[in-house]
Amino acid sequence: MRILRSIQHKYCADGSFMKEFLLDAPVTREFFLYLGNFGKIDQLPNLGDGFYKFDKPDWFSIKGFIGDSTVEVRFKKETLEITVDFLYLLFSSYHEGTMDLTFLKKKETLRAARVSKLLYGK
């Protein structure tokens, strides 16, 4: 799945930075379940075609409806420069079928160390 472009952005009341991304395909339930390997998933599957929200504290959250080709991403402003590449990687790495997450997990660990050092000094 590819991010085609950012179609709007704004600063939110909680200080986060929101970007709405247009994707090359509608998001699926399986895509959000895949994201669940890297953070927490909240869902209201019976609302509309299914509302899903992925949350990775100190990094970003992603929310959207199944079947929609746009998602809303909220970055923690302080860590955006470190985490934004990983967001693109999460989208571009996804494909249907069994996935090997080794590479993504390694990247996640390296980024997590930088995020932790930036926010908490360790």
């Binding site: 009341a13 509309g48 509302f51 929200k53 929609d68 809303e72």
Partner: peptide
């Protein structure tokens, strides 16, 4: 903000 998102996107 999730409720606002749901209202806007789904309805």
């Amino acid at each position: 903000d999730d409720v606002g998102f749901m209202l806007a996107r789904a309805y």
